[in-house]
């Protein structure tokens, strides 16, 4: 990764400009050209180094969400995960090494629809869903500091 690419990741974990030419503003700050920034970002995206460039939404303010877990026999995990993933409200789904081996985030426009979605996921998945909504955040989301090797 070249210096500009590292700088883009380091400096823009927040505060990507909201203006007509955001990449030009970033370029001016980093002493590069707009074309350099656009091609560096395109390259990072292409190479899979970025998950995306854009807004991080606060699930709680934009609707309702919860962290959900299921305990599924290993040999059924793939099939159950596929059924769970079919729900548009499911946006992260990880297999984890634990009795509770399927962990996913569920979002919905409001609390009632979230509860309905959890019930539907339970019925479709075939296993009980343990819902673990955030009670309190002890973390201020400022992005994640990268220490380059």
């Amino acid at each position: 990764m070249n210096q500009l690419e590292q700088q883009l990741i380091d400096e823009y974990q927040k505060g990507l400009p909201v203006c007509s030419r955001p990449y030009l503003e970033m370029a001016n700050r980093l002493g590069a050209s707009e074309g350099d920034v656009v091609s560096a970002l395109s390259r990072l995206k292409q190479d899979g180094m970025l998950s995306r460039i854009g807004p991080v939404f606060n699930h709680k303010k934009a609707g309702a969400s919860t962290l959900a877990a299921m305990a599924v026999p290993e040999d059924e995990l793939a099939a159950v995960a596929e059924r769970v993933n079919a729900f548009a409200g499911v946006n992260h789904n990880y297999a984890r090494e634990h009795k509770f081996n399927l962990w996913f985030v569920v979002t919905a426009p409001d609390q009632d629809q979230l509860q309905t979605a959890l019930k539907e996921i339970e019925l479709s998945g075939g296993y009980k869903v343990m819902s673990l909504p955030m009670v309190k955040s002890h973390f201020i989301d400022l992005g994640f500091k990268v220490k380059w090797q």
Binding site: G89, N91, N93, A95, E97, L114, A117
Partner: peptide, 22 residues
């Protein structure tokens, strides 16, 4: 709890319909 596999990873998604099921 270590993750052994990423089964789905997207940012928050609002579905295009009001329904939460795709």
């Amino acid at each position: 709890l270590y993750s052994s596999k990423i089964l789905k990873k997207t940012g928050m998604r609002l579905s295009k319909k009001e329904s939460v099921k795709s």
